[in-house]
C-alpha cells in the first residue's frame, strides 16, 4: 500500500512542479502585477489563469475565447491546433499530471469527510455538462454575443471559471489596491463558485474535471486515439475488477481502456496485482480493448 501511496505522491510532486513552472514569475506576487513578456504568446497545456500574478504562459481556454471573440478572427487555428496537437499526443494525461487546478482538487479530496461520494444518481449524465459548457460558454457566446465592435467576452472565464478566481482574482485583489476598489457582484459570484468547488472537491473526486472543465472536455475526445495510451494485457488480466474499484473517475479500464473520462493518473496500473495494465507511446502489441463496452 505504501508503494501505491508513494506513486500517487510522486504524481502530485510532478503536478506541483508543473504548477510552479506555469507560475514562476515571482515578481508578480511581490508587486501584484502580471508578467507581460513574450512567453505569454504561448499556451500552457493545463488550466492556468493568465491573470495569475505568477503566470508565464497563456491559458488555452482563455486564449480560445479571446481569439474567437476578437473582431478580426472568428476561428482560432493557433489555439485549436495547440489543443488538437496536445490532445492527439497525450489526451487527458494533461488532466492527471499537468494541470494545477487538478492538483488542487486532488489535494482537497484528501481532506477527511464523513461521507465521500464515489458516484450518485445522474453522475453519468452530469459528465456531459462539460461538453455543453465548452460549446455554449467557450465557443458560441464569445462568437455570437458580441458588442458593437464585434467583440465577444470570455464568458466561461467571466461567469464560471473558479481557477481564475483562485489564481488571479484573489491574489490580485489582495495585492493590488485599485483592484480592491473595483470588486462587485461578479467577484462575489465567482468566489461563491470557488467555495462551492472547494467544498464539493472534498466530497467528490475532481468535480470540476468531471462535470465542468471545457479543457478536459476537449482532451477527452482525443483519449481513445491519442498516441500515449493505456493497454490491458488480455493474457495477464484475470478480471478481478481491482482497477475499476480503484479508479476515482469511475472508469473500468478492462471494459474501455482509453475511456474519455480517464485522466491517466496511473492508479489502475499500480493497483493491478498481475501488472496487466501498461501505458506509453510505443506499446509493441496493441491489444487494448478500447471499444468493448460500446
Amino acid at each position: 500500500m505504501d508503494k501505491k501511496r508513494d506513486r500517487e505522491w510522486r504524481r502530485h510532486r510532478i503536478q506541483a512542479l508543473w504548477a510552479l513552472l506555469y507560475n514562476s514569475y515571482i515578481m508578480g506576487f511581490v508587486h501584484g502585477k502580471i508578467y507581460k513578456g513574450p512567453l505569454k504568446n504561448l499556451c500552457v497545456p493545463g488550466l492556468n489563469c493568465y491573470s495569475c500574478p505568477g503566470a508565464l504562459g497563456a491559458c488555452p481556454i482563455g486564449s480560445l475565447q479571446a481569439v474567437i471573440g476578437s473582431w478580426n478572427f472568428k476561428f482560432a487555428f493557433y489555439v485549436a491546433g495547440f489543443l488538437i496537437f496536445t490532445g492527439a499526443l497525450v489526451g487527458r494525461f494533461v488532466c492527471g499530471w499537468l494541470c494545477p487546478f487538478g492538483l488542487i482538487q486532488d489535494l482537497l479530496h484528501k481532506i477527511p469527510f464523513p461521507k465521500k461520494l464515489k458516484t450518485f444518481k445522474g453522475d453519468k449524465l452530469l459528465r456531459k455538462l462539460k461538453y455543453v459548457i465548452l460549446a455554449v460558454f467557450v465557443i458560441l457566446l464569445p462568437l455570437f454575443a458580441v458588442d458593437v465592435l464585434g467583440q465577444g467576452a470570455p464568458y466561461f472565464c467571466k461567469l464560471i471559471c473558479p481557477a481564475g478566481t483562485l489564481e488571479g482574482g484573489i491574489p490580485l485583489v489582495l495585492l493590488n489596491k485599485s483592484m480592491r476598489s473595483a470588486i462587485g457582484w461578479l467577484y462575489a459570484w465567482k468566489n461563491i463558485l470557488l467555495l462551492a468547488t472547494i467544498f464539493i472537491s472534498i466530497i467528490i473526486y475532481r468535480p470540476f474535471c468531471k462535470y465542468i472543465c471545457p479543457l478536459g472536455a476537449v482532451y477527452s475526445v482525443f483519449n481513445p486515439i491519442s498516441v500515449f495510451r493505456y493497454k490491458v494485457d488480455e493474457e495477464k488480466c484475470t478480471g478481478c475488477g481491482a482497477c475499476a474499484r480503484a479508479c476515482k473517475m469511475q472508469v473500468d479500464p478492462v471494459r474501455n481502456t482509453n475511456h474519455t473520462e480517464c485522466i491517466r493518473c496511473g492508479k489502475c496500473k499500480s493497483i493491478c496485482p498481475e501488472g496487466a495494465i501498461t501505458s506509453g507511446f510505443w506499446n509493441r502489441k496493441d491489444s487494448s480493448r478500447q471499444e468493448k463496452s460500446r
Partner: peptide, 15 residues
C-alpha cells in the same frame, strides 16, 4: 493571445 494574456483579464478575475 498575447494582447489578452499580457493584460489583467478583468473578466477572468471576476471584476
Amino acid at each position: 493571445v498575447f494582447t489578452k494574456a499580457a493584460r489583467i483579464c478583468l473578466e477572468c478575475i471576476g471584476i
